[in-house]
């Protein structure tokens, strides 16, 4: 597990985070154009993290579950898309994006329940989690999932236990086609951009790397053949920390605090200047 010196951000703290150790930002590359939807990553994730299998039903799709769950942090989304007579079957690995500017962490009221390491991993510390679900409203990707039994929230850890000892995340290790790759952000962006250039040359003029700036970029970057329409893959077009959460954690918080302090000061001043309604 990462040490104290690697803590870049800590949720709900009044003090600055102690992380001073510089580390390269790690990144997982998801190349949807070479994903075959084999789901090896789904099972690798469960097995490495010792998560129990889910009970599922056939929903008329190849997709394992409608959405991620507290026990299922890695879901391949399958979508049939047809335009101009050309059919495509889009498969995308859905998981925590590990935002540079994480909405979950911003929204979290429990000190230390969500931390961000200097290498970019956003990690939930369930022992500190109070189960309020604010992170779920703070996440623009709808990733954190509530566990009914433990009353805590869970998501992909980027296999922080593996990464911190120099291993790749379990899903990357299991991926047979190398559609998942792992390395520094610079290295992964280079691989991704090279692939995008190749896709441009092969007739996918809109191919792009999905690394949304609205959340400061993500530690999971995705190559999309239809880069102009991330929503085809179930990705938000321009994700940011939700406006409501930003208002609430920003101006409203300051206004509110000011108002409360002002109110108390106001009545104090009143008491000193005017005082009680004397009866005599």
């Amino acid at each position: 597990m990462p040490a104290t010196l690697e803590l870049l951000r800590i949720s709900a703290t009044t003090a600055p985070a102690p992380g001073v150790r510089t580390m390269p930002t790690i990144t997982k590359l998801v190349d949807t154009t070479t994903c075959i939807g084999c789901k090896a990553c789904e099972v690798a994730c469960q097995e490495w993290n010792d998560l129990p299998p889910e009970t599922t039903v056939q929903m008329g799709t190849y997709q394992t579950l409608p959405d991620m769950t507290a026990n299922f942090w890695n879901l391949i989304r399958f979508r049939e898309h047809e335009e101009n007579g050309a059919l495509s079957w889009l498969m995308r690995k859905d998981q925590c994006m590990h935002c540079a500017d994480p909405g979950c962490l911003a929204a979290c009221p429990a000190p230390g329940a969500i931390v961000q390491y200097t290498n970019g991993i956003v990690d939930f510390q369930q022992d500190q989690c109070i189960g309020c679900g604010y992170c779920m409203t703070g996440c623009p990707f709808d990733v954190p999932k509530f566990h009914v039994k433990t009353q805590r929230v869970y998501k992909c850890t980027m296999c922080v236990d593996r990464v911190s000892v120099g291993l790749q995340p379990a899903c990357v290790k299991a991926c047979p086609t190398s559609c998942l790759q792992f390395g520094t952000k610079d290295a992964m962006l280079e691989v991704a951009n090279k692939r995008v250039e190749q896709l441009h040359a092969n007739g996918f003029a809109q191919a792009a790397v999905y690394d949304p700036p609205g959340v400061g970029g993500t530690s999971v970057i995705t190559v999309l053949a239809h880069g102009d329409r991330p929503e085809l893959y179930g990705l938000p077009r321009d994700p940011t920390i939700p406006m409501a959460v930003r208002l609430w954690k920003g101006p409203l918080k300051w206004l509110g605090n000011l108002a409360m302090v002002g109110g108390i000061l106001g009545v104090l001043v009143h008491y000193v200047r005017v005082g009680r309604k004397d009866h005599d």
Binding site: A107, G133, M136, T137, P242, A244, V245, L247, W248
Partner: peptide, 10 residues
């Protein structure tokens, strides 16, 4: 419907 939760919180 995640916006519902966000607005409710606000």
């Amino acid at each position: 419907l995640s916006a519902v939760g966000q607005i409710a919180t606000l």
